[in-house]
Amino acid sequence: MFEEEIRFLRKMNKRQLAQQILNFLMIISSALMVWKGLALYTNSESPIVVVLSGSMEPAFYRGDLLFLGMPDEPVRVGDICVFKIPGRDVPIVHRVIKLHDEKETGKQYILTKGDNNQVDDRGLYNPGQLWIHREHIVGKVRGFLPYIGIITILMNDYPQLKYVLIGFLGLYMLVNRE
């Protein structure tokens, strides 16, 4: 199956090889540009997230894709927010169930809960932390696309798969004739 490709690689001169590598880099950089452009447009550091837990079932299942936005207007009760607890890497997607806007400072005191959880998130926050604030919020869920993110979850669960996939894609780009 690969004999033809290998012969093709041998036959290529330096110029063609350079061209293929440039093509490959071009694809990577345009993907990066789209991602960063989206982040700028939505004003959210990660405009697309994959659902990693079942705490928002039956609305969001593991592997569903969420599109985020960061609106100028303040957070309101009922909004589904993605937030990061200081000192932890994995963001959480939960609904705001309680909110207090302080008059003097304008600071928002926010409490969240997963629709599928029986209790609020105070057990998930850092010890002694009762509220989260605006600065913890990465974005507000605006759009929904089911199933697509399952690839990310598989790659997280089986890290080898990631290298196999990247290696295969890279090879394919190199030997692709167009």
């Binding site: 009760v77 309680k98 806007d101 302080e102």
Partner: peptide, 29 residues
């Protein structure tokens, strides 16, 4: 796919402009 329905209480106090509290919820499919 579904509706998330909640009853929300809203009030203002001396120290806080807006307070919103969910009192009841239901998921309708």
């Amino acid at each position: 796919k579904q509706l998330f329905v909640a009853v929300i209480a809203e009030y203002e106090t001396k120290s806080h402009d807006l307070n919103q509290v969910v009192l009841w919820d239901s998921i309708i499919q």
